[in-house]
Amino acid sequence: MFNEELLTALPGIQSTSSFEDGGEWLTVYTTDWLHLAKKLRKHPDLLFDYLFCLTCVDWKTHLTMVYHLSSTVHRHNIVVKSKLDRDNPEIESVSHIWKTAEFHEREVFELFGVNFLHHPDLRNLILPEDWERYPLRKDYEDPVNMIKL
């Protein structure tokens, strides 16, 4: 199965990651994202060159970055997740590995407040530049514009 393939392709990955085979795709939880990302992109058996979805989920206790990757060569998919501290969320930017991440990371930055280290141009993309809080976090309140159902 794909799980084993990944393990044989990337020895030493277990120390920082854990796997979950449920659902349709393999999910990897990682703490060393940049290292893993480079390997996923470069390894000839993996070649995950297509980042089609990048987002973040607020779990109230922590944030989780979710990366959906696929390979245009081997046509396999993988989901990589990384747990972040909610008070001071920081993660390495992957915009130099997948260029599309530049925009997606800017979006996550302004909506969740995740700080992407080494991002070339990290500033608000959608919200006005002086916007302060992070709208997609669960504790966001806006008495004017939000309607509670």
Binding site: F52, C53, T55, V57, D58, V66, H68, K99, T100, E102, F103, H104, E107
Partner: peptide
């Protein structure tokens, strides 16, 4: 992308829109 907590409403939804990625190019 739907994250569900088992309730009647989604916990988090992400729409991967084609235009957003295309615009980045």
């Amino acid at each position: 992308y739907i994250v569900s907590e088992g309730g009647t409403t989604p916990y988090r939804i992400k729409f991967r829109s084609p235009g957003f990625s295309n615009l980045s190019a």
